[in-house]
Nucleic acid binder design. Structure first.
Length: 472
RNA sequence: GGUGGAAUGGCCGAGAGGCGAGGCAAGGGACUGCAAAUCCCUCUACACGGGUUCAAAUCCCGUUUCCACCUCCA
């Protein structure tokens, strides 16, 4: 039996995962800056780390999972002006949009989901400590900066040299000792929200808040820090800088997911090529979108196309169809079982694509077992497939994916269609194929497709996926 | 300028010195009254040029193209 190996951005190698505390795993994931609706790049990160979390849990760890909400920053303030709403209303509006998107994709709520604005006290304490240790300074204008030249191991994560960095174009060097020093705290501008501190009123810098929240919920050292690849520099470098300057070991392992691209380019708001989750959910179900996003390896770029998404959804429906038939034949839902193929794949730095190949194999064998009427084999493969889907967060029997409130209607529909199917079966028995085909065509016109199986006819609703505008 | 990543069959996508993942599409076959579903078979690739090796898609050197980060970014 293999053991879990994970890739560490810091060492650029894959190594066995060893938790700081036996049986416990602590994860801090950089969450969203809630200033716009979520696009699929945002939720890919959520899905990737949700799979990590589920696999750690399945492997026996008690997982503490923190994902923060950055609810105060420049963009939110700009948006507030633009949308003519208070900044906190903007933040809440988009925080809810993210929560809806995560829920639709079955991303588990984090153990704790701290908001930046709720942790100003902890940020002030951290700054106090950094100033006392001589790592940070308050030049008197209300800003507080970290002095990066004093750090011994700055930029080890991104492997850059301080002097090679291009100085920020908008760097205000009036108060900075070095242009590369970064702001822990930003002095209040007129009209902007602010919190009082010993160094003047202001608001949190982006980097400081994550360090402060990680310390608050996970302590001075924790197992895994995650986020998108684009956070490596400067965000994560600066988090490391602040935490190490404060004397904390901080994260033991760094994991970064690659981004979703469109036409070869990274999805981003500024490019205008971002695809909103809410929009895609008009074409495919949440479970199908998750299957698509989770199916690529987390460190590989995922080139989005509507065609690829639809293809992936079709493949998923085949799996669902097998599971449904297994229930019809066995009269019971499969019991999730994790097989060795899946375990080995997941333990190899979450090799989901390899795991998917194993699921395809089980699916083929399971379908063959249905043809052969081998109930034992049907159960085995259904169990293994469900076990794998459960870890991937795509278990169709999971109550989050159930169509709530529709059960009565479904039962009525089922009864109605079965009535029609009985007519059709009778027609077929007397070889009146014109009549039987008329019934089938009639149902098809209503969006209901018929399959004849050894166990009798089955019906299902044909999905009407409507392609999103502007995508192929 | 600095730091990284990528190039695989019609398409999507793994892998990482020898045994050619998997899916989708396509063609053929089995089954079927016909469909559908399912199963079987076929098509089979690693950007380019050198090198190392008994053996390279995989390692080394060089080249090209694309992408990203260095400014807010999942």
């Amino acid at each position: 039996m293999s053991s879990l190996h994970l890739y560490d951005t810091l060492t650029r190698t894959t190594a066995p995962f060893k938790a700081i505390k036996d049986g416990e795993a602590s994860i801090y994931l950089c969450g969203a800056t809630v200033q716009a609706p979520p696009h699929i790049g945002h939720v890919r990160s959520g899905v990737n780390f949700d799979i990590l979390r589920r696999w750690l849990t399945k492997s026996g760890y008690n997982v503490t999972f923190i994902r923060n909400v950055t609810d105060i920053d420049d963009k939110i303030l700009h948006k507030a002006v633009h949308e003519e709403m208070p900044w906190w209303a903007v933040a809440m509006k988009y925080e809810r949009a993210f929560a809806d998107a995560y829920a639709a994709l079955n991303v588990m709520p984090p153990t704790y989901e701290p908001r930046a604005t709720g942790h100003v006290t902890q940020m002030i304490e951290l700054m106090q400590k950094l100033i006392e240790r001589g790592a940070a300074y308050a030049p008197g204008n209300g800003d507080v900066y970290l002095e990066v030249r004093k750090l011994t191991s700055y930029l080890t994560l991104s492997r850059q040299k301080l002097d090679d960095l291009q100085p920020a174009a908008d760097a205000d060097e009036t108060y900075k000792k070095d242009p590369r020093d970064f702001a822990l705290w930003k002095a209040a501008k007129p009209g902007d929200p602010s919190w009082p501190t010993p160094w003047g009123a202001g608001r949190p810098g982006w980097h400081l808040e994550c360090s402060a929240m990680a310390h608050t919920y996970l302590g001075e050292a924790f197992d895994i820090h995650g986020g998108g690849l684009d956070l490596v520099f400067p965000h994560h470098e600066n988090e490391i800088a602040q935490s190490e300057a404060a004397g904390y070991p901080f994260a033991k392992l760094w994991m970064h997911n690659a981004w979703v691209t469109a036409s070869g380019e990274k999805m981003s708001k500024s490019l205008g090529n971002s695809l909103q989750v809410a929009e895609l959910l008009k074409s495919v179900r949440g479970i199908e979108l998750r299957w698509y996003l989770g199916g690529a390896h987390y460190r590989s770029m995922l080139e989005f196309s509507m065609g690829a998404l639809e293809e992936s959804a079709t493949a998923f429906r085949r799996i669902e169809s097998f599971l449904q038939r297994s229930v019809e034949i066995l009269g019971t839902e499969p019991t999730p079982v994790i097989n060795a193929t899946f375990t080995d794949a997941m333990n190899d730095d979450l090799a989901v694509p390899t795991a998917l190949a194993g699921i395809s194999e089980s699916l083929r064998l399971g379908n063959t077992a249905i043809t052969d009427g081998d109930k034992k084999a049907i159960a085995q493969h259904a169990n293994e497939i469900r076990g794998a889907l459960e870890v991937l967060g795509c278990d169709p029997f999971d109550s989050v994916f159930a169509q709530s409130g529709a059960t009565d209607l479904t039962a009525a529909l089922d009864g109605t269609i079965k009535l029609a199917l009985a007519q059709r079966t009778a027609a077929r028995e007397r070889k009146d194929f014109a009549a039987s085909d008329a019934i089938r065509d009639g149902l098809a016109a209503l969006g209901i497709s018929i399959e004849d199986t050894a166990q009798g006819p089955r019906w299902s609703i044909t999905s009407h996926a409507t392609p999103t505008e502007g995508s192929k």
